[in-house]
C-alpha cells in the first residue's frame, strides 16, 4: 500500500430509503477519506445522516450508489473471504451501552463471540485473550463472568469497546459513544479511545453531536446537513475559521463554559427547522435557511471545493 493511500475512502456515497411515495435521502453524495491512525468526525444535528453514513460504510446497509474503498479496493467487489476479513477489520461502538449488550450473555462470552468466528483459538486461549482485552480497556479480568446489568454505564461502554477490540480491527466507527454518559465518565472513555488509538494505530470514524468533544478528539471534521457534507477541514482550522454559513451557525450555538450568552455574545440564528429529507430543497439544501442565499443556490447544487489547503466547503458564495 502506498503511503499516501487512505485506509478507507468514500466516493459519492448515497443511501436512500423508500418513504411512502417518496424517497428519503439519508446520505446524499458524500465523499471523504480516512487515513491510517486518524480520527475523522462527522458532526451535525439529529437526522442529518451521520449514523446512516457510518453504517453504510461498514456494509450494514447496501449503498444506493457510490463506492467505499478499503485499502484501495471497492468493498462491493469483495469475495466472500475478503468480506469476512473486512467484517473483522472494521468494527463499531454504539451509543447506548444498555441495549447493545445481550443481557443474557456474560461479558466474557460477549467479547469471545466474534473471536469464535474469526480466530482459530481454543476455549482457554479465547478466555485468556478476552481477559487481556478487558484489562486493556480498564476493567478487571473477573468482569468476564459478570452480566451486563451488574455494570455501570461507563463500564458497559468499556465492554462495548473491548468487544470491538477483540477482533483486532484497524478501523472503528464510534457512533455517539459518549452521548449517554456523565461528564466525568465521558472523560474516561475519551481518554481510553485516544490511548487505544495511539497504542494500536486505530483509525476512527467518530460520530457525535457534542462539538467540544469532537474538537478534542478529531484530526479532521466533516459537518453534515441533510445528508450531505457541507464543510470539511482539520479540527482546529474548522473551529477557528468556519466558511460555510451552516457551520458558522452550528458552532455559534455551542454553549461552552468559556462563552457567556447573557453578556451579549450573539448566536447566529437560523430561521425555521431542518427541511424533511424526503422533500429536500433543490440546489443547495441549506438555502431555505441561509441568509446569504442567492439565485444560483436554488438552481445548482454546490460541490465541495477546496477553499484553502485541506479546507473544503460546499457553497457557491465563498470566494477563494
Amino acid at each position: 500500500m502506498p503511503d499516501n493511500m487512505p485506509l478507507l475512502s468514500v466516493k459519492n456515497l448515497c443511501k436512500y430509503f423508500p418513504a411512502g411515495r417518496g424517497v428519503l435521502r439519508a446520505v446524499d453524495n458524500v465523499s471523504f477519506d480516512i487515513r491510517q491512525g486518524e480520527t475523522f468526525s462527522l458532526v451535525g444535528e439529529s437526522g442529518c445522516g451521520k449514523t446512516t453514513c457510518g453504517r453504510t460504510l461498514l456494509g450494514v446497509y447496501t449503498p444506493t450508489s457510490g463506492e467505499v474503498y478499503y485499502n484501495g479496493t471497492d468493498i462491493s467487489t469483495f469475495s466472500k473471504r475478503e468480506k469476512k476479513l473486512f467484517g473483522k477489520k472494521a468494527q463499531m461502538i454504539f451509543q447506548d451501552p444498555y441495549s447493545c449488550l445481550d443481557p443474557r450473555m456474560t461479558i466474557g462470552s460477549i467479547i469471545q463471540e466474534g473471536m469464535k468466528v474469526h480466530f482459530d483459538l481454543s476455549a482457554s486461549e479465547r478466555q485468556n485473550k478476552a481477559e487481556e482485552i478487558l484489562r486493556k480497556t480498564g476493567l478487571r479480568a473477573d468482569f468476564a463472568s459478570r452480566f451486563p446489568h451488574e455494570l455501570s454505564g461507563g463500564q458497559r461502554q468499556r465492554v462495548g469497546i473491548a468487544r470491538a477490540l477483540a477482533l483486532e480491527p484497524d478501523f472503528i466507527v464510534c457512533d455517539e459513544p459518549i452521548a449517554s454518559l456523565d461528564v466525568s465518565i465521558q472523560a474516561q472513555i475519551i481518554n481510553l479511545l485516544i490511548k487505544l488509538q495511539q497504542e494500536m494505530g486505530l483509525s476512527y470514524l467518530f460520530i457525535s453531536h457534542d462539538l467540544s468533544v469532537v474538537r478534542h478528539i478529531s484530526d479532521r471534521i466533516g459537518v453534515m446537513y441533510l445528508g450531505g457534507i457541507v464543510e470539511s477541514a482539520p479540527a482546529e482550522e474548522i473551529f477557528r475559521n468556519p466558511f460555510h454559513p451552516y457551520t458558522q451557525a452550528l458552532f455559534s450555538s455551542i454553549l461552552s463554559v468559556d462563552s457567556d450568552r447573557s453578556s451579549g455574545a450573539s448566536r447566529i440564528k437560523l430561521e425555521g427547522e431542518v427541511p424533511s429529507p424526503v422533500n429536500s430543497p433543490s440546489g443547495c439544501k441549506f438555502r431555505t435557511r441561509c441568509k446569504y442565499a442567492a439565485e444560483i443556490c436554488s438552481n445548482i447544487s454546490p460541490e465541495l471545493r477546496e477553499i484553502e489547503k485541506d479546507h473544503f466547503a460546499a457553497c457557491h458564495l465563498i470566494n477563494k
Binding site: V183, S184, Q186, A187, I190, N191, I194, S212, V213, R215, H216, I217, A235, E236, S256, V257, D258
Partner: peptide
C-alpha cells in the same frame, strides 16, 4: 473533566 483548550488537542482529560 470538560474538554477544552486547557488540555491541548488529544491531551488526556
Amino acid at each position: 473533566s470538560i474538554p477544552g483548550r486547557h488540555q491541548g488537542h488529544k491531551g488526556e482529560l
